[in-house]
Design a protein around this nucleic acid. Structure first.
Lengths: 199, 199
DNA sequence: TGAAGCGATGCAGTCAATGTAGTAATGTGC
DNA sequence: GCACATTACTACATTGACTGCATCGCTTCA
């Protein structure tokens, strides 16, 4: 059976928490908003908040962690004579497309993006996840290309790619570019960075 | 008058706090060590700790923030017909040299590096400072090259460079490479990334 | 219908971080 | 040599994120 009463209720309180949090963050700022306030606005106890989100930061980008899985899967399903450069380009393109389709298109994401760019605490949180993603991509590449012996070189390539794309996206967003131009900037950054690898 | 009794005492408690913190972190781990324990080991009150360090994280990498200034200065003193690529390469080389000379050479830094690589909280802290450095380098470049109109492209280049170097360094360190090989990996990553820019 | 599972709650407690007020030693002007 | 301002440090109280634990009540399923 698809979804019982219990799961529906749980999902509803979770969504109520997210909505309350975003609304409060927008109105009084991230730091000025306490978890107790969020819980009260969602009409649940403070304790319940932490049953749904491990930290206060997680409520901002709730459910935005599926992109890495996507990229890893692309890498692991590489064709036998695809070069590492091609596979990486495909993986990055895949992630960019995913971002363009979900995060940047909807309006709620706008608030989130602005929060992420302005609140240093959230920046740190995002970077932590980004670093984790980078590590997993490097691991996937090493698994798919066991003949490649220089892990550090692979890591450098991935680091350059991720660094270029995120930096371009950050500055484009900060400048106030519309979604299409942001993705265009990300693509351009990825393309220019990938050019430097020959093998 | 160079240094009165007061300042000397202050410096001594600061160093005592750092020493106690590193020792405790090494023995029982970062998270398992409380600020109160550090303060007690340094024979000062808990409140005093926060008079010397804004956060618990800062005690790990106390005083490692002069490198960015160095790079910014290199960028601002560019010659009239140096290309942006050359200036950036020089700035990065400058920072790599600085790291090689100080951080990687001394033995105490070894504990710090291991902490930074293993404790996610510290990784996030380091990345935050790195992002800040990136932003300041981009700003300096834009000031020194006012004819360059595409800020996003500049940001992408800097992001790629920083991402490649730090990723390479992280993986080299994690693999247990000796200091010389780590700096060599950083240089190689920087060189390979810089190759992709023509203008 | 009864038992097991699970979401939610209240409460007590830990820890990082901040504000306040006060003490004692150091530095400075007379 | 003496008053006076600084300042490093301390004790105490408080906020706010986060956790462990016991418990209550509503689903779910046998």
């Amino acid at each position: 059976m698809a979804e019982g009463i219990r799961e529906r209720k749980k999902r509803r309180t979770r969504e109520a928490l997210i909505a309350a949090a975003v609304e409060l963050f927008q109105r009084q700022g991230y730091e000025a908003t306490t978890v107790a306030q969020i819980a009260a606005a969602a009409d649940v106890s403070t304790r319940t908040f932490f049953l749904h989100f491990p930290t206060k930061e997680d409520v901002v980008l709730a459910g935005g962690g599926a992109r890495v899985e996507l990229a890893v899967r692309v890498i692991e399903q590489r064709g036998p004579d695809e070069t590492m450069r091609d596979v990486l380009a495909a993986a990055v393109e895949c992630m960019i497309g995913e971002v363009a389709g979900s995060e940047l298109a909807t309006g709620i994401a706008d608030v989130r993006v602005r929060l992420m760019l302005t609140v240093p605490e959230l920046q740190a949180w995002m970077l932590r996840r980004l670093l984790d993603a980078q590590r997993r991509i490097v691991d996937a590449l090493c698994r798919s290309y066991p003949e490649e012996d220089d892990v550090v070189a692979v890591a450098a390539q991935v680091g350059a790619l991720v660094g270029a794309v995120t930096s371009a996206a950050t500055y484009a967003l900060r400048r106030g570019d519309p979604p299409e131009e942001v993705t265009a900037a990300m693509r351009a950054a990825a393309g220019r960075t990938a050019l430097s690898w020959s093998r």
